[in-house]
Simulated assay, not measured.
Amino acid sequence: MKIAKLHYPLDDSFHVDGKTVVAMGLFDGFHKGHQEVLKRAKDEAAKSGATFAVLTYDHHPALVYKKMSGHEKRYLTLLDYKMKLFEAFGVDQVFLVNYSYAFQSQSPQAFITNFIERFNALAVVAGFDHTYGDKQTATMANLPKYADGQFKVITVPPVDDDGKKISSTRIRIELDSGNVDEVNQLLGRPFQTEGVIVHGEERGRLLGYPTANVEHSEYQWLPRIGIYVVTVTIAGKKYLGMASIGKNVTFSDIHPMTVEINLLDFNQNIYGEVIKVDWLHYLRDEVKFQTPEQLIDQLADDANNTRQYLQTHPTILD
């Protein structure tokens, strides 16, 4: 898969060989709705013998027109992971556009001239609510008018789950509620994050439940505070674990937020390893225990519940 990093205005030397079918969107989350857009573009490209391409953006478009909080700046899928998902889906070419004020300020007609025409697009595919500039005019409903027959416009309707639209916003809300089972249903795969194993306070080891402390990017959206069933991929192999997102409130009222994972039946030194975490099931909220012994008893219950989850979902380690 080729990735072209583009900035408006495009360099005069930029060119695309051959015809393309272009799927447009931020695709944060890469959920089932996004996958339907990509599938329509992939099918259209195969039918016409064109290159299957994606136009996406290097950051949230909202950064251009409003002040965003630290939480709002986070992503469901960080850029590198999103590129891997595109490649796995069969995308041939990614046009990665810097979403700037100048880019957004183009008229819809200028956007077509400056980008779509230069992509040699036979067709453009996007979700019904996608915009490519000013939200009032640069809509999918208006795109056929601006295209004026130069290329085919395919607008994909919303994809529903349980009667409600699948969207990145809905997934963020579910993560903030700890509903990772629901999130995984909307994604069509486990919600996955990536981090590096770093040293912590090693309190878990003293309790008999040593934990791997996972340092994530500050831009990674994570589930809410709580205890979860997870699988962890280390050097290509999956392991079962129970993860804690929290502040270790049993031992301190001012402890910073951490992600700590106890890997069951595991005894290896993995400091410095970059791991992938699949978030599978919410077990419970974080609780402040009166004694370490109460916490140890709870951890034993958590481990039993994690093993029971594996018994009812035996393919999670495949």
Score class of each variant (00 low, 15 high):
Tyr309Gly: 10
Ala138Gln: 11
Pro108Ala: 02
Tyr65Gln: 04
Ala235Met: 11
Asn184Cys: 04
Asn114Met: 03
Asp43Trp: 04
Phe115Val: 02
Gln268Met: 06
Gly178Lys: 11
Leu299Ile: 01
Pro144Gly: 06
Leu63Asp: 13
Gly236Leu: 07
Ile270Gly: 02
Leu96Met: 11
Pro314Gly: 05
Met242Ser: 12
Asp181Arg: 13
Val156Gly: 02
Gly241Leu: 00
Thr131Arg: 03
Leu263His: 03
Asp17Leu: 05
Gly272Ala: 02
Val159Lys: 12
Asp43Ser: 12
Glu87Tyr: 07
Ile116Tyr: 04
Asp129Asn: 09
Ile261His: 07
Val287Met: 12
Leu207Tyr: 01
Leu222Pro: 06
Asn262Phe: 15
Lys84Ala: 15
Val64Glu: 10
Ala45Trp: 08
Glu117Gly: 03
Arg284Tyr: 06
Met24Trp: 12
Glu201Pro: 01
Leu122Gly: 05
Val54Arg: 09
Ile254Asn: 15
Val21Leu: 06
Ser100Asn: 04
Thr20Ala: 08
Gln104Trp: 05
Glu36Cys: 09
Lys19Arg: 15
Thr258Cys: 05
Val274Leu: 10
Gly70Glu: 15
Phe30Ser: 05
Thr250Trp: 04
Lys19Gln: 13
Ile270Tyr: 11
Lys39Met: 08
Thr193Met: 02
Ala300Tyr: 01
Pro144Glu: 08
Leu10Asp: 01
Gln106Asn: 07
Ile173Arg: 14
His130Ser: 15
Gly25Val: 03
Gly188His: 03
Leu206Ala: 13
Val64Cys: 05
Ala50Pro: 01
Leu175Phe: 01
Ile171Asp: 05
Lys165Ile: 14
Lys19Pro: 02
Asp285Ile: 08
Ala4Arg: 14
Leu79Gln: 15
Gly195Gln: 10
Val64Pro: 06
His34Ala: 06
Lys19Trp: 06
Val259Gly: 07
Leu79Cys: 14
Asp302Phe: 05
Gln298Asp: 00
Asp253Pro: 08
Glu182Ser: 12
Lys82Asn: 02
Tyr81Phe: 12
Ile166Tyr: 02
Ile112Asn: 12
Phe266Glu: 04
Val183Arg: 06
Leu240Trp: 04
Phe151Met: 07
Arg74Ser: 06
Glu36Leu: 09
Phe27Val: 10
Tyr282Asp: 07
Met83His: 14
Tyr101Phe: 09
Glu218Phe: 09
Val198Pro: 00
Arg118Asp: 08
Lys19Met: 14
Val230Asp: 08
Met1Ile: 05
Thr258Asn: 09
His34Lys: 00
Thr250Lys: 03
Asn248Arg: 14
Ile173Val: 15
Tyr239Asp: 07
Thr77Met: 05
Gln290Thr: 14
Lys67Gly: 09
Ala23His: 03
Leu10Ser: 08
Ala41Trp: 05
Gln35Ala: 00
His59Thr: 11
Lys135Met: 11
Glu117Asn: 13
Trp279Met: 11
Gly70Ile: 01
Met140Pro: 01
Glu44Ile: 00
Gln35Pro: 02
Ser69Lys: 02
Asn248Gly: 03
Tyr75Thr: 06
Gln220Trp: 01
Met257Ala: 09
Gly25Arg: 02
Val274Lys: 14
Asp318Ala: 12
Gly195Leu: 09
Ile112Gln: 09
Phe86Trp: 10
His15Pro: 04
Arg205Ser: 10
Gly208Ile: 01
